[in-house]
Design a protein around this nucleic acid. Sequence first.
DNA 1: TCAAATGGTTCCATTATTTGAAACTAAGTC
DNA 2: GACTTAGTTTCAAATAATGGAACCATTTGA
Lengths: 258, 258
Amino acid sequence: MRDNQQDGTVGKALDVLEMVAARAPVRFSDLMAQGGYPKATLYRLLQTLTHQGMLAYDEARGSYSLGLRLVRLAHGAWSQSALAPLARQVLDRLAQATGETVHLAQMDQGQVLYVDKRNATRPVEMFSQAGKVGPAYCTGVGKAMLAFMKDAALTEALARQSFHRFTAHTLDASALRAELETIRQRGYAFDREEHEAGIICVAVPILTGLGRMIGALSVTSSTARSSLPGLEAQVPALQQAASDIGAEAESWRFPESS
Amino acid sequence: MRDNQQDGTVGKALDVLEMVAARAPVRFSDLMAQGGYPKATLYRLLQTLTHQGMLAYDEARGSYSLGLRLVRLAHGAWSQSALAPLARQVLDRLAQATGETVHLAQMDQGQVLYVDKRNATRPVEMFSQAGKVGPAYCTGVGKAMLAFMKDAALTEALARQSFHRFTAHTLDASALRAELETIRQRGYAFDREEHEAGIICVAVPILTGLGRMIGALSVTSSTARSSLPGLEAQVPALQQAASDIGAEAESWRFPESS
DNA sequence: TCAAATGGTTCCATTATTTGAAACTAAGTC
DNA sequence: GACTTAGTTTCAAATAATGGAACCATTTGA
């Protein structure tokens, strides 16, 4: 978390926000212990952020958590992200057609950010799903997006991957590079239980007419319910959906995965 | 929007964030026109926020929108808000029992912030609902919360109400004051088509054991489907649900509705 | 075609804000 | 009652933000 280039006071404040996000609810002393900020500085930043509603302070426990103002702002971000609202009907159709769980994801700072979801089996969960992040190097959507990023962004994104070995199938850095090439040629990515045992998925990138990658779409299943060839059969539907979204998004620019 | 007390540089940055939130996608010149910031200052704030991922800049259109980083942070805020995750099962049960649309709301800067929802009729919409804000003075949850706020917070919240007349039934400032007293005594609030014609609801505050108001719960219907007495029949179920949540939330502090 | 206006970006001396070591207070601990 | 520990305040020094003005690149319109 400490790796942020500064951007002055605002950068510091956001850095503190992330520190709280990572371990909330968290006490002043914990932040003090793990952080590179002097006591008085950290103290004042927390005060300001709390006063602004970006953090919430629990007097009883003396701990900080993220504030509700973020929820309100995120509602705006989500509805303005151009991709999520635009993709809603397409997602509905895709979930209907495949009968499986469907994810819509974008890239955020080298991580996979899930922006929408349809759950075919269980009733849909709200919010608890949109906003979730996941690793890029071992998820279907992550690899699909990495494969279609432009070089500069890809290099930076790869540098941010941890390559933690979640399962026996998780790829390492060099295996990933090779696989990305395959994905680029084939046009879609698999997740072969690389993130979670028993969970498999196929994912396709969402490309604008100009070839810019703006997100990814996936169909997820379990080894119990389906198999890789079974999922592969969903690829045409996925690609159709992705191109529907891409066509509409044409003029919209995907924010740099800085 | 310009009413923010400053809190230094961070306050200014967040003020700009709100300006973008309010009218996105918005061009530099529009912000320039309506904002109290000199050109160079505004320019630099936008740069910083964009670089930090709090804003997204659309190169093609030359316009700013809210950034995806907010969505990620909000996911944390939501799951840390203590109320929302804690209330999920209760909400499910309540929606099941009443067969109507159910809302969970909290107060944020004098506005009603919806943090979760169950929609009995249509399939649930994600995110697009949680994070929404509404007026406090003319919604069931809003009035239920106002009625149980402590004096200082109430005064401040009332000062922030616009009292725009949405329908013929919308209350004005003095009518609201009287109604709040009634609600306080009765323990629940109605929305008699005050915000939207044809839409009615009953709402109860969520109180901790110590009497602190931490949110509100409502059941919504339409004049076509139901009536006020019909909704009133749901009050016991609502109050049970609210007290279930309140009991669990005991030790948790509701962030000041600054 | 060329002037003028508009919209966005950069400069830089000035100014205001942030900084953080240290002093201080309030609550535990032993 | 001395001794930590955790949080808060102070204040001169250090730093970052400020914003008027100059600048560049497009667009407008005459």
